[in-house]
Design a protein around this nucleic acid. Structure first.
Lengths: 136, 136
DNA sequence: GTGATTGCAAATTTTTTGCAAGATA
DNA sequence: TATCTTGCAAAAAATTTGCAATCAC
C-alpha cells in the first residue's frame, strides 16, 4: 500500500514526498474532508507538517485531478477522493458527505442535459447532491 | 416596491428594519451572492451598515426560509434569493450562478429518488448543479 | 416600554503568501 | 545538481461574538 500511493503520485507527475503520501492516505480513508479535517487527522503522527502544507498539497492534488473539490454550504473547502461522477448525500447538520453511487441516475440526467444543448455554457461536471439529515 | 419588501418581511415574522430592507433588495437584485458581495453592493448607500450586520441579516433570512444557502466550491457563504427547487449553472472560474429552471428534470429526479427509498436519510432538497464555464 | 436588532471593535476561523532550508528525481 | 516542496511565521480573508445603544412594534 505505501508503495502503491507512491506510484499513484508518480502517475500524476507529483513527487512522492512523505507529506503527500500521508495526506493522500488520510483523504483515501476519510473519503470527503476539509483541509482542516485532514490537518486534525494528521495530529502528531507528523509533527512538522503544517496547515499551509495541507493546503498546498491538497491544491496540488486538485490541479492534477487526483482529487476534486466538492460543493458545500459550510464555507469550508471540501475535497473528494473519488473523482468519477457520483451523487452525494449531504448532511446539513454535520456537513458530512456520503457517496451515493447510482450510475443509472447519472446517465439519465446526463442524457437529458445533453439533449438540452445549453448555450454559452461549457459543461464540466454534473453534481447531484441530496441534502438533508443523515441519521445515525 | 419598498412597502412590498416591508410586507414580505412581516410575512416571515421579521421586523422590517432599514438594514433588512436594503439587504433583501440587493439579494433580489443579485439573485445569488456571498455576504461579501452584498456588503460591497451596499457601498456607501448605507454607511453605518457593517459586515457583521450583513451576516446577521442573511442568517435571519435563512432561518425563516426567505433565502437559501447555496453550495459553492468557493469557500464562501453563498445565498440564493429563490427558494423553490431549481437547477444551477455554476461557473468554476468566476463562482457565479445562473438559474436553470427545468421542472421536468427536477420532477424526473425526484420521482427516481423517491422510488429508491434511501435508508437512514431524511431528504430535504435535491440540488442539481451543472458546473463548468459560463461564457460571456 | 420591551424585546429584538444594530454598530462597533475585537476575536476566531479559514486560507494564503514569501522566503529560506531541505528533499526528490 | 536543479527544481520542486516544505516549514515557519506572518498576513489576508471570511465569519463570529459580546455588549451597549438604538429601533420597530
Amino acid at each position: 500500500m505505501p508503495t502503491q500511493v507512491k506510484n499513484l503520485l508518480k502517475t500524476y507527475n507529483l513527487k512522492a514526498t512523505p507529506q503527500r503520501i500521508t495526506i493522500y492516505k488520510i483523504m483515501k480513508n476519510l473519503g470527503h474532508a476539509s483541509a482542516d479535517l485532514v490537518y486534525k487527522e494528521i495530529g502528531d503522527q507528523f509533527p512538522t507538517l503544517t496547515v499551509a502544507t495541507v493546503y498546498n498539497v491538497l491544491e496540488s492534488f486538485v490541479e492534477v485531478g487526483l482529487i476534486k473539490r466538492r460543493l458545500s454550504s459550510n464555507n469550508k473547502m471540501f475535497f473528494d477522493v473519488n473523482t468519477y461522477e457520483h451523487c452525494h448525500l449531504y448532511c446539513q447538520k454535520t456537513h458530512k458527505f456520503l457517496d451515493f453511487d447510482d450510475t443509472d441516475l447519472m446517465k439519465m440526467v446526463h442524457e437529458y442535459i445533453s439533449k438540452k444543448n445549453i448555450e454559452n455554457f461549457e459543461l464540466s461536471t454534473i453534481d447531484i447532491q441530496l441534502s438533508g439529515y443523515i441519521k445515525n
